[in-house]
Nucleic acid binder design. Structure first.
Lengths: 150, 150
DNA sequence: TAAGTTAGTTGTCAAATGATAATTATTAAA
DNA sequence: TTTAATAATTATCATTTGACAACTAACTTA
């Protein structure tokens, strides 16, 4: 197996994933929520409850900017903060009922596009897809380890 | 196979791909090239020669903004325009020698991170990874078709 | 308890990006 | 041959995003 060739394949693959992800989400109406704010909401939805620091680190947004954007979201009633019992400096963030239903709609939209793409897939196809994702997520796209590291 | 469950797996997978892609590229020194400009260069590198319209459509940047950002890149000597012989309105864009070596460095950096992630993989592993990417790119992450369509 | 560290906030500034209108030149269609 | 459509440019403006400094409060460690 030529590693160089595998790398080229990976570049093409990653490009396709980005492209398809964009296509699957692009016609969901964000209203006056900005892309960065939506990214934060998505992260909160999946990982709630989360702290501000966690959002900041995972979404690669500085603490001041995270704080600012999150404030806009809470002001709009999309998420809620509550004090961490174990550490009074910390605040946990979760979606409000409104925020939850907004994100439910977003995910429903994504899932519709997703199911459309798989409309002609057989049971065997779906199984192969699930296995393929698992293979990649356990190797190339495994998270939580660094190379050079800063 | 539960489609709902597969969707959740896909969300997790896509998140991992985005995360790892970011990690693999983040410590490459962009100098004073902005992220959007880098995205354009990457697209040109892979698909050259390309027209302005193609960049605009594929990178989802309006024509005026594409034109503006591309002008900055050509002014810096990173890419070159040349007239399309078949249509005098069109201009093809390709990387200059300088732009080419910049992108070579960028890809080399990515590849280094890539190979590091696969450093413990056996021949059999690499084969499974290649096959997995192929499976997904032929199904879920197939490009060039739309659902609702605008 | 003093000093240092962590979590988060507020304010301000500059740069990057997105959006729109108006324009030229060229090609395609009626 | 007028008309409409396409490819690209320029100019302008508003918004978004990123970066930095200064700050408070709470926690940790020596």
């Amino acid at each position: 197996m030529d590693n160089k060739e595998l790398f080229h394949q990976a570049v093409s693959f990653i490009t396709a994933v980005h492209q398809v992800t964009f296509d699957m989400t692009k016609d969901f109406e964000l209203g006056d929520i900005t892309p960065v704010q939506y990214g934060m909401l998505e992260y909160i939805a999946v990982s709630q409850p989360v702290t501000l620091s966690e959002i900041s680190e995972c979404k690669h947004i500085s603490m001041p900017n995270t704080s600012r954007e999150l404030k806009k979201l809470t002001d709009r009633g999309l998420c809620e903060k509550f004090d961490a019992p174990e550490d009074k400096r910390k605040q946990y963030i979760r979606l409000s009922a409104v925020g939850q239903s907004f994100m439910n709609a977003a995910f429903a939209h994504m899932e519709k596009e997703f199911q459309y793409r798989l409309r002609h897939s057989t049971e065997a196809d779906l199984k192969r897809i699930a296995e393929a994702m698992q293979v990649l997520q356990e190797s190339l796209f495994q998270e939580g380890f660094k190379s050079g590291g800063a």
